[in-house]
Structure formats: C-alpha cells, structure tokens
Simulated assay, not measured.
Amino acid sequence: MAHEQHQQLLETLHDCMAACNHCFDACLQEDDVKMMAGCIRLDRECADMCAYLEQAITRNSPFVSQLAKVCAEICQACGDECQKHADMHDHCKHCAEACHKCAEACRSIA
C-alpha cells in the first residue's frame, strides 16, 4: 500500500494528532483538571495512535489495515469524550470534529 495513495488520510491523521495535542494542552490549563481527566487521557492515546498509523502508512507496513481499525476505535472514543465538553470548550469541540473525521477515514481502509 503506497503512501502516495493515502495522502488525504495522512493529512487527516496529522490534523487529528495536532487537534488532540492542542486539546490535551488546553485541558491541562482548565480550572477543573480532574473533570477533564478522561479527555486528557484519550487525547494522548489518540494523538499517539494517529502518529503511529501515519508512520506505518509512510513505511508501507503490512499491518496498516489492522492499525487503522484500532485507530478508528481510539479516535471515535476520543471524539465522543471531547464532544461531552464541546459546549464549554472550543478546543474540545474542534478535537471532537477532527477525531470523528479521522475515525471515519480510518474505517474506510480498515
């Protein structure tokens, strides 16, 4: 699977990773950090998985489909958690949108 074929997915993965990293950092600045603990944890998991899948695609890993399935699950979970805080925090709203878009893109190749 050549990474040139998946340029749009690579961009979606990168955008999701960046949104999760931003949300992670912004959540740590919130007054009630404990309330954001689930969001923070999933932001980290999602950013790391997106970065790993991006690398796997660019090196033509034979495990891309399996990794994409896991990535879709993590992105969906992160997006769902961020959605819970979207009314209060713009960074969570943006992250939820990026995660749900990435989950959909990953499902398309899983």
Rank of each mutant, 00 (worst) to 15 (best):
C50P: 12
H85C: 04
A2R: 07
P62W: 01
A103W: 03
D48R: 09
Q29A: 07
H85R: 07
M35S: 13
S65R: 08
S108W: 00
H89G: 05
E97W: 01
Y52S: 15
D15N: 14
R41D: 12
D15H: 09
A47K: 03
F63K: 07
C39T: 15
H14A: 14
D90A: 13
V33S: 01
F63T: 05
H14G: 09
D15K: 11
Q55L: 14
A37F: 13
M49S: 11
D43C: 12
N60D: 11
C39P: 14
M17S: 15
H3K: 06
G38E: 04
D32Y: 02
Q83P: 13
M88Y: 09
E81G: 07
V70K: 15
M36C: 04
Y52R: 15
R41T: 08
Q55R: 15
A2Y: 02
A18K: 15
Q7H: 10
Q8P: 01
R107T: 02
C16W: 12
V70N: 14
C27L: 11
C27V: 02
C50N: 14
K101E: 03
A105C: 04
H89Q: 04
L9S: 02
Q55A: 15
T58W: 05
I40M: 02
N21H: 13
A96W: 04
C106K: 00
F24Y: 02
A56K: 07
C75Q: 08
